[in-house]
Design a protein around this nucleic acid. Structure first.
Length: 509
RNA sequence: GGCCCCUUCGUCUAUCGGUUAGGACGCCAGGUUUUCAUCCUGGAAAGAGGAGUUCGAUUCUCCUAGGGGCUGCCA
């Protein structure tokens, strides 16, 4: 597999929404593929029919699309190696399991789920929590190694359900070189005879992923660390199937950890700690539960992707802001860290703030006016862009931009209580009243005009900014803080500014 | 319990044997700002512990501890 084209796959199971750890795996696959001029393939691993969740596959496709890491080939896209849903490839797997049986690398096993449950429990009661179906125990189980050939045939002919298990040699060292971890070695004595083919006629993940990766000519398997323990099993399968020469290279990624406490990030952590763990909002139809999504929480996909890229990888330079194209160029599996990365929500917010600032005033204006429209306000684009320009420094999200600038769209209906209490008094009333008169005489209402006349007023009366400013702001915006009042007044216009000063004099004590 | 993987500031991380151990987020202080935010400057903050190799270890090896993953006819 040295000179072959790079082909990588992201192979989620449609058992629910794809969480951010899965998205990161997809991202690293995508980045690697694009950088190497290869293909990024989406394969749906739905071999467990009991865990199928309606809508999950669509969710996966939509999520990748939102992130901008759409597959070149695979489910929802098509390609020459389909079908890309394992349930639709069902007929292909049987022959490979059979091949393994014929070669003596696998065997039939007739033990029922209850049988297995019983021996496991027995072992546990005897103080060994780790019963394995392996070279020492398999002779006492019901399988084609312990039973006579005629007995086996009889059971099969009578339609008795069976599984096919891999037959591991005892005391064999299985080694492979992982791109991120280096050499990893496991002895078969510590592995068990995993089921390859289930009694329902479907392969398990272990068989299916090897067969499909081989058939789809996958060059690199980039997946989460939770797969590391079964990688040796997969190596053996390639070997026993005769595919070792074209075996893909492996890269096991560090896990995403909970921000607090221990363990890997799970779907419950989000609501518990107040951040989304899913890219898109997900509605659980059975329970009615809703899991929040980054998209719905106002995150830009660029920020989300950038944040994810840095959880487990970094370019080794001081640059932190990377577009998808830049990530593609800079990414390297060799620079992926080995240790799990704890998710940091503050950093995610920071990334979003950075991306918000990177956007042009025009674009922010468009996004802002879309928010305003939802609230029933129409506004022209030039004005929206001007407002965005003035307000963007203090926003992390578009919704901040909207909430902070709502006063541009309508006169205050209420006034900041604290400022009212501390800064509004008879003097303030007089100043606002005076400002009304002064502004009324202005023929031009640019920020400079407003500032000039305001400062002239201060000077004539020997006043400091702090004496007049807060009351002025309160009267016009209803708030105790914000950007330059002169800019605000200019955007509002003379008429609106005067009307608000007047309104305040009427409404405030 | 067994097996495998991992271990630098609170968090994400840089360092490919010799550095005042660097950056970012967050935090704190000061400055700019009428205010808030931004911005600028500064600060606190780390090599889990113990052996060994070496002239010299954060870096290499081993042990211990801690963390994580796996241990299903789930993926």
């Amino acid at each position: 597999m040295n000179n072959a084209k790079v082909r990588v796959r992201f192979a989620p199971s449609p058992t629910g929404p794809l969480h951010m750890g899965g998205v990161r795996t997809a991202l690293y696959n995508y980045l690697f593929a694009k950088q190497q001029g290869g293909d990024f393939i989406l394969r749906i691993e739905d071999t467990d029919q009991t865990r199928f969740v309606p809508g999950a596959e669509e969710y996966i496709i939509d999520s990748l699309k939102w992130c901008g890491i759409s597959p070149d080939e695979g489910q929802g896209v098509g390609g020459d190696f389909g079908p890309y849903r394992q349930s639709e490839r069902k007929a292909m797997y049987r022959q490979y399991a059979q091949q393994l049986v014929d070669n003596g690398h696998a065997y039939y096993a007739f033990d029922t789920a209850e049988d297995l449950e019983r021996v496991r429990q027995l072992a546990k009661d005897a103080g060994s929590p780790n019963w394995q179906y392996n070279h020492v125990t398999r002779n006492s189980m019901k399988n084609s190694l312990s039973l006579s050939q005629s007995e086996v045939q009889k059971r099969i002919d009578s339609g008795e359900p069976y599984v096919i298990r891999i037959k591991l040699n005892r005391n064999e060292e299985v080694k492979f070189e992982d791109i991120v971890r280096g050499w990893v070695s496991v002895n078969t004595n510590n592995m068990d005879d995993k089921v390859l083919f289930k009694s329902d006629g479907m392969p398990t993940y272990h068989l299916a992923n090897i067969v499909d990766d081989h058939l789809m000519q996958i060059s690199h398997v980039i997946r989460g660390e939770e797969w590391l323990p079964s990688a040796p099993l997969h190596i053996l399968l390639y070997r026993y199937l005769g595919w070792e020469d074209s075996m893909p290279q492996f890269a096991h990624l560090p896990l995403l950890l909970k921000p607090d406490g221990n363990g890997k990030l799970s779907k419950r952590d989000g609501d518990r700690l107040g951040f989304p763990v899913f890219p898109l909002e997900w509605h659980n139809k059975e329970s009615g539960e809703v899991f929040s999504g980054y998209r719905e929480n106002g995150y830009f996909p660029e920020a989300f992707i950038n944040m994810l890229a840095f959880l487990g990888w970094n370019p080794g330079t001081a640059q932190e802001l990377f577009s998808l194209e830049e990530l593609t160029e800079a990414f390297s599996l060799k620079k992926v860290n080995k240790a799990g990365a704890r998710y940091d929500h503050d950093k995610t917010r920071w990334f979003n703030q950075q991306y918000l600032r990177l956007k042009s005033d025009e674009e922010l204006g468009r996004l802002l006016s879309a928010e305003a429209q939802k609230a029933g306000h129409d506004i022209d684009q030039a004005k929206a862009a001007a407002i965005a320009a003035l307000m963007k420094e203090r926003a992390y999200f578009i919704k901040d931009l909207w909430e902070d600038s709502e006063f541009f769209f309508q006169a205050p209906t209420e006034y900041d209580e604290k400022t009212l209490r501390k800064k509004w008094n008879q003097d303030a009333r007089n100043h606002v009243s005076q400002l009304h008169q002064i502004f009324e005489m202005l023929s031009s209402f640019t920020p400079e005009d407003v500032e000039g006349s305001f400062k002239a007023y201060l000077e004539e009366n020997g006043l400091g900014f702090g004496k007049v400013g807060p009351g002025f702001r309160l009267a016009v915006t209803g708030k105790g803080m914000g950007p330059s009042m002169f800019e605000i007044c200019a955007i509002l216009g003379k008429e609106e500014t005067l009307s608000r000063l007047k309104l305040a004099l009427e409404k405030l004590p």
